[in-house]
């Protein structure tokens, strides 16, 4: 390989530092604390610098850096890798998610900004931080970083179906938490009945974070 096709240390550093803010934002949501996030990001950039010959100039450096960051996070904080057993399997991901009425869904979002009703940013961060790692990672990578399912599957080292399942469950938990918050704020009124459509009613246990015993009981049943 000709030498000039490999990115130089200076070029690499310059380009990588453009992504510092993104990496720190993602790192913050992964580790949920500033000290760990900074260590994680520094670690990531030093590793990336060392491995820069594996980076193909002209390709997406942000996604490549996020991949290193995610792997470093999983190796460092989740030595056993991400949980799989609880999340996979057909009955762990029921089709219906009619957990709230159409009127409430409408009330929660703001048509002007295409975002949620001005829920405090802190509330969203709090709800995000309460998610189990595997869900949180998927939601952050897809929603905050707008990576494709394929890229996230590659980064997390799992099939695309697993990404979809983690994302779906993560988003549903977020919606559920934020719905409670919106209710407390009076943005939405109390539900007359959970599940506005007849065939959408979902049992309450589907909305709560997975509990191993519940899951087993369900499997056994």
């Amino acid at each position: 390989m000709p030498k000039h096709s490999i990115i130089s240390a200076e070029e690499f550093e310059q380009e990588a530092l453009n992504h510092l803010s993104t990496l720190l934002s993602v790192g913050m949501r992964f580790t949920r604390n500033a000290t760990d996030a900074e260590d994680l990001v520094q670690d990531t950039l030093v590793k990336a610098m060392r491995a820069r010959h594996q980076f193909h100039a002209g390709t997406n450096m942000r996604a490549w850096l996020i991949k290193i960051l995610t792997n470093t996070f999983i190796n460092r904080f989740r030595r056993g890798g991400l949980e799989k057993s609880l999340l996979e399997g057909p009955d762990a991901d029921p089709l219906a998610d009619g957990w709230v009425s159409t009127a409430s869904m409408q009330a929660m979002r703001d048509p002007e900004t295409a975002a949620l009703r001005p829920l405090l940013q802190q509330e969203i961060v709090k709800a995000l931080d309460a998610l189990p790692d595997e869900f949180r990672l998927a939601v952050v990578l897809v929603d905050a970083e707008e990576l494709s399912y394929r890229e996230v599957a590659d980064i997390m080292g799992c099939p695309i179906g697993t990404v979809m399942s983690r994302l779906h469950r993560g988003r549903r938990m977020l919606k559920s938490t934020l719905y409670e918050h919106a209710r407390a704020l009076g943005i939405v009124g109390p539900e007359a009945q959970i599940g506005s459509d007849g065939d959408e009613a979902t049992s309450a246990s589907d909305q709560t974070p997975i509990n191993l015993n519940n899951y087993r009981a369900k499997r056994m049943g």
Partner: peptide, 15 residues
């Protein structure tokens, strides 16, 4: 969609 937009803003705005 709204959740997507808000999450993106929240993640990037928080740090």
């Amino acid at each position: 969609q709204a959740l997507h937009v808000s999450t993106r803003r929240a993640v990037h705005g928080a740090t």
